[in-house]
């Protein structure tokens, strides 16, 4: 049961007729997508492979630019943002399916990577996050020495280090066994509730999407259905 109703009262994020074309217009990844996500909501985007769910997540995360349409963060349209990377740094945290940890850095240093170039000492915060995620004894371990679940928890800590408003997770349990997947989802949901974060998660796994407040089903680049989980 979500702490927010399935239809968000206060959208933190909304897309407006969002379209994305690939291959010089030959492939339509997204076709007029309109969604709204409420503050603190946990939304799962599901659908078959190639339906456009990852493309939608990339556009929301400002990793790609839409062919047409716009996205609003609260009242701010993305098209009016002057520095997308600065916006991303301050508002969005990413969690990837294959973790994308840097192999030569320890867990602690991996968490600190997003803070490089930012003023201040972020060590204490990184240590606190790793401790909260149950990795207090694994801080100085390199990714190769961590289990899949531990790596994804390091990635979650990394996504949280800049104190974002939204976590975008692309198949966060896709590389994990069911036990580790459940543990990672527990961590993600626990952090969301505690920090009142908004989580948008792409998954093709029905048992994973069931953990969300709301499920947006996509097909052929369009929203097919929105249902409460």
């Amino acid at each position: 049961m979500s702490i927010f109703p399935p239809s968000p009262q206060t959208p933190i994020l909304s897309t407006h007729k969002l379209s994305l074309l690939f291959d010089e217009g030959q492939t339509r990844a997204l076709d007029g997508v309109d969604i709204e996500v409420g503050e603190g909501e946990f939304v799962a985007i599901t659908g078959p492979s190639g339906c456009g769910k990852s493309s939608l997540l990339n556009l929301i995360g400002t990793l790609d630019t839409p062919t047409s349409g716009d996205i609003h963060f609260r009242t701010q349209p993305y098209s009016a943002l002057r520095d997308l990377s600065l916006f991303r740094r301050e508002n969005i945290g990413f969690v990837f399916q294959s973790f994308h940890l840097l192999p030569t850095l320890s867990a602690l240093d991996n968490v600190l990577v997003p803070t490089i170039g930012r003023p201040g000492d972020h060590q204490e915060r990184a240590r606190a996050l790793l401790t909260k995620l149950g990795l207090s004894k694994r801080m100085n371990h390199f990714p190769a020495k961590l289990s899949g679940g531990e790596r994804q928890r390091v990635a979650i800590a990394r996504a949280l280090i800049n104190d974002p408003d939204i976590i975008l997770a692309d198949e966060p349990t896709g590389s994990l066994d069911s036990a580790n997947a459940a543990q990672v989802l527990d961590v993600l949901d626990g952090i969301r509730r505690e920090k009142e974060l908004t989580v948008i998660m792409v998954t093709h796994d029905a048992s994973v999407s069931a953990r969300a407040d709301r499920i947006i089903r996509m097909r052929d680049g369009k929203v097919d259905a929105e249902v409460a989980a």
């Binding site: 990793l63 990377s85 600065l86 740094r89 990413f94 994308h100 990577v113 490089i116 990394r158």
Partner: peptide
């Protein structure tokens, strides 16, 4: 790909 990750993690282009 690594640079893509850094950008996704919020690195500014000047960094």
């Amino acid at each position: 790909r690594e640079i893509g990750i850094l950008l996704a993690l919020g690195w500014q282009r000047r960094t």
